[in-house]
Design a protein around this nucleic acid. Sequence first.
RNA 1: GCCUAGGUGGUGGAACUGGUAGACACGCAGGACUUAAAAUCCUGUUCCCGUUAAGGGAGUGCGGGUUCGAUUCCCGCCCUAGGUACCA
Length: 927
Amino acid sequence: MEYNHQSLEKKWQNFWAANGTFEPSSNTDKPKYYVLDMFPYPSGAGLHVGHPLGYIASDIFSRYKRLKGFNVLHPMGYDSFGLPAEQYAIQTGQHPAITTEVNIKRYREQLDNIGFSFDWSREVRTSDPKYYKWTQWVFMQLFNAWYNNDADRAESIDTLKALFEISGTHGINAVSDDNVAEFTAAQWKAFSDEQKEAELLKYRLAYLRESVVNWCASLGTVLANDEVINGVSERGGYPVEQKKMMQWSMRITAYADRLLRGLEGLDWPEPLVEMQRNWIGKSVGATVKFPVPELNGNIEVFTTRVDTVYGVSFIVLAPEHEWVDALTTDDQRLEVQQYIDKTSKKSELDRMADTRTVSGAFTGAYAKHPLTGEKVAIWIADYVLAGYGTGAVMAVPSGDQRDYVFAKHFGLPIIPISDSQNITEEADPNKEGRYINSDFINGMTYREAVPVLVAKLEALKLGKAKVNYRMRDAIFGRQRYWGEPVPVYFKDNLPRLIKESELPLVLPEVNKYLPTETGEPPLARAENWKYQGQFDYEWSTMPGWAGSSWYWFRYMDPTNEDVFASKQAVDYWQSVDLYIGGSEHATGHLLYSRFWNKVLKDLGYHEQEEPFKKLINQGMIQGRSSFVYRVLDEQGKGTNTFVSYGLKDQYTTNALHVDVSIVYHDILDTEKFKSFRPDFAQAEFILEDGKYVCGTEVEKMSKSKFNVVNPDDIIESFGADTLRLYEMFLGPLEQSKPWNTNGIEGVFKFLRKLWRLFHGADGNFYVSDEEPSKAEYKSLHKIIKKVEDDIERFSFNTSVSASMICVNELIDLKCNKRKILQELIVVLQPFAPHITEELWALLGHQPGSISFANYPAFNPDYLIQSEFAYPVSINGKMKMNLSLALDLDKSTVEEVVLANADVQRYLDGKNVKKFIFVQGRIINIVV
RNA sequence: GCCUAGGUGGUGGAACUGGUAGACACGCAGGACUUAAAAUCCUGUUCCCGUUAAGGGAGUGCGGGUUCGAUUCCCGCCCUAGGUACCA
């Protein structure tokens, strides 16, 4: 029988599904291993060939781990709440649940074709009420928690209430809103229920408060910072403006430092760790207060260079700073007001694009320098951001380039503060010299000055050491329909949780998926949707990241109706050992997941500080578009003639995308092209060498560019095993690369050769029971070692190459020996599961048992010593590698050395006096 | 600007801690089989010189350095991709 991938692959996919082959055993002594993929949003376009890249890699690793004796959890599901389904609903009136269901079905079919070892019995969908019941439950845990800085962990809100009962706010060290009240235990007890709730809300990890948000009018919703790219929405690219709104937020800033520290122990790609570090943006410095006698208060600034405080020659406030109005003198009022008007009109984009122009306005007011007592002018300028630090900076023109430019532009003093500064052209922020013009720190170095200054400011109560973070609390509400309802109702204008027993709070039906006429979110349209028939529910829904911020727990125990996952399951599976997904989630999903994981840990639901131990970012697969060149006539109109790529420069042409499915090795199938579009039916071609050559370009895969390659088509022609191997063979997993079907025949041939190795010319299966030769064992054990090493370091492209070499060698040796092939197919099983299952069964093993066979043990004795290169030193210092010459068993050590040209050259005729051996190897040569 | 990754044949890419650069595959060229084509198999394929060959020279973005030996390590520069940006 010839290699028939179509029947063979279907057969095994059905077998695996029918037998639940990949459900991990619940009762086992095997060590556990949890392999997770970032679950997809099921979009209407279906999968293209780029989507499964990471899934194939994780599947190879999962299968490999099973062969290595692990109890592997490898689940899959759908992140099925999201904007596209809702946009579609708005346009068509179709309920998003229906669209989602259809899309999921299509995804599932496509995924099934590839032969993954997912345990589908554990599938989760974030839009399923049985699932989002627990997303709502997690929200409740966050609502019912506060962050105790002294314990450095979240605690139940009940412990905070208890502390208030005993001593009021005295001694509380919590992460909270800025505007918390101070009160005694007696005052607390005297508070009304509403007052207490209002106060507690300022401490909860999930809280409601008025905040400046990224409002996207086109999408009709607010967006988190990571959903805004360059001032426009990540989805759709619509403009985003700043707006004050009552919003649900998550107090992720409470975890800033733990999120930062936790990065150190993770086996994650360095760029990704770096991205999270930058996002958290820790800066260590100090706050300094500049008294303003007129207002009977202080302007507080944050600085990382408190040592430059004597170089302060003015203060700059953000135009939005709350004191600007009160500070501005009557003389300056007009100018200040004009400046504020001007900057507030600038969009976020303009403000960023325009970083070169210096602008600002003087308020007319002065503050007192905290140490010298001198008058310091107060300015406003839009280079100071209201949202970072205190929204005010102390300007040190000699040490900060922006302050320098500003001072030069407005003619403000520039005070040098260090004997090593050169400030004739620009600011000089170096920390090398000793201070000048700096009163009591004159002559000190940077290291000496900082602690003394901080101590002095603290003694004066005009400053203290402070750590600042760039990360903001995460906005949690979305004014959209297709998301988890927030399990909250309003009583006396204050949010209250519904009871746990009332979960899930099911998404109500609405007549339209748009905001109401009064601008309320779509959920406000739901009729008779009131808690206990009288209280309004929260109308905003949770953001897209809610459901994905804890889903790895649900896979551990997906059908449990009593808890999000049983204690037993959580204790067993612990956390994800290997997580594979794209790096685009660096500052969104991966940060929020770590946050929720830590909260759930603090509240005692599990014991893992981090959810994902090892992370791999697979690269993106781009499309490779093909072009034809239409000749234009003298009026610039398109003719019916198309010129081949190599000759196009002789004509005036315009390039048109042509469907990649009618192009083979960049040669256009001109007949198919004629039926590609009706107006091409009469097309004529100017050929080169009798062929029409297409131009190519690497672009994003998209329908409009006709460069989408559907995995189903590849599987139809070449099979799932070929697709899997080829995706891996394409290059390093982490690297982004364009899809190019051109090379796929190479791996297809490889599988066919493997098949033919077991089959005689008559097409019958045939293996020999003869004892394999030394050379045959060598081939086998080379691949065992190579593939094992490569899988462990996720170098799948090289393991595929090694497999090809091995099969070629066995073909040259005409080896069809049972002992060799049996182990070879186990090694190949993770990559090409279908063909190997078939061969395994043909060898007489129980069907399906290959998935849990033992990975063959590597035996170094089968390899000659030359395979082990090792370094050798000469006279104890020089290192060289003797791998080349040790091939011959008969060689004496002298012969070995003399056979190596490099060694000879180095020895340069000198006599070898002595060889130093350790464990039968030369490690040193003395001359 | 800053951070991170990378730059190797016609193409995708190998070379794991410095040790025969270009594995493996695609493509291309030639050959076998065939009336022919497809499929399959075999041979060759970094570039330059050498009629073939033997042989020689150059070569991993550019310029230096360390080393017996550098794609690999160090210094300076150029380019590409991703991230980030008045963050005080």
